[in-house]
Amino acid sequence: MKIKPIITNKIVTKHTSYDVDLDLTQNITFIVGDSGVGKSAVFSFLQELSAEDKRIKCFNYLDQNKGYKTAIKRTTSNGKIFVIDNADILLNDKMRQYIASDSVNQYIIIGRNPSGLLLQQDEIYELANEKKSGRTNFRLKKALE
């Protein structure tokens, strides 16, 4: 289900020698890929960004028992960008259904199994990294490119 981004079409941040430059073309950005390519590192950089950008809320396995589902569904959560790592553990079928039909928030989801989110194959992304002048730049590319 292709829906244009509700909150933002770009997230840019820096963390020491790392640059994150994410072009978001869908409301749900699902990021897959090999282990060790930097997915959780990018999550941690976005988590850091969330301290300055109040629209961004981040959840990972450490939040498993901290009511993250309620936090996402809360009406005061409208207008947020939820970044979810370890999605294969955190998101059950019901939650995926909720996210797929959520028309007031945007999502960046890092995981392996995109089922239940009503995504098409060309809506699945991978991380690409490029090293230049001592800096590492992370961006998104379509997984099927």
Binding site: V32, D34, S35, G36, D88, I89, G111, N113
Partner: peptide, 8 residues
């Protein structure tokens, strides 16, 4: 093993 990438 649900969180493993292809390489793992």
């Amino acid at each position: 093993i649900r969180e493993c990438g292809e390489n793992a």
